[in-house]
Amino acid sequence: MSGRDAILGRVRRALGADSDDAMRLQAVEKRLARPPKGVIPARGQGSAAEKLHLFCTEAEAVHATLVKVRGPEGVPAAVAAYLRAKNLPAELRMGSDRRLKAMPWQRQRSLTVRYGASDGDDLTGVSHAFAGIAETGSVVLHSGADNPTTVNFLPEHHIVVIEAKDIVGDLETALGRVRRKFGRGEMPRTVNMITGPSRSADIEQRLLLGAHGPRSLHLIVVEG
């Protein structure tokens, strides 16, 4: 007997589960098809302006930095300003995401942009978020041909562009949007929910930023 049959057999015996199989299976199928929503914290359920405000407050509370720009064409200048303020070289790594590519990077003369996955030698990476979560100040990113996961983790500094209209109140709504985009039960290879820069408190419970992932997380919120 395979490990699979042995384990499932033991589980069924322990649950006393041969008589009411049909009913139990029905309960399972129903829940998978129509997930109950559960308890959603009220704090993220305000107006769009309140959601944006909460998103910013929560993100900054966990040491993300944040700047707002008007329209996507303002992003490259905001990125260049951030690099200058941090005294970083004018070099970026990003995926070939359409929304990022459409931005006027060429206007930032000295800026070098490399496209594709990160090889670990990039100091600064730029990603475009799929959604933001107001209740925790998190950004949601998903992998795909134009969105390498390595850009989210290998660079020392991670800049994430998020459109204000993509900020939702709660985690369930954000994952619901992933589901709508990819279809029920289908997922991209990875969905990353990122809340602040990398950290560790493993030495004497002292909080230190920049453990293995980016040392800083900079959010550029695009309004209008």
Binding site: V62, E135, M187, R189, V191, N192, M193, I194, T195, G213
Partner: peptide
């Protein structure tokens, strides 16, 4: 409030 990285992985690349 939440961990820094919550990652959902589904299958290979």
């Amino acid at each position: 409030e939440t961990s820094v990285y919550t990652t959902v992985s589904t299958g290979p690349r």
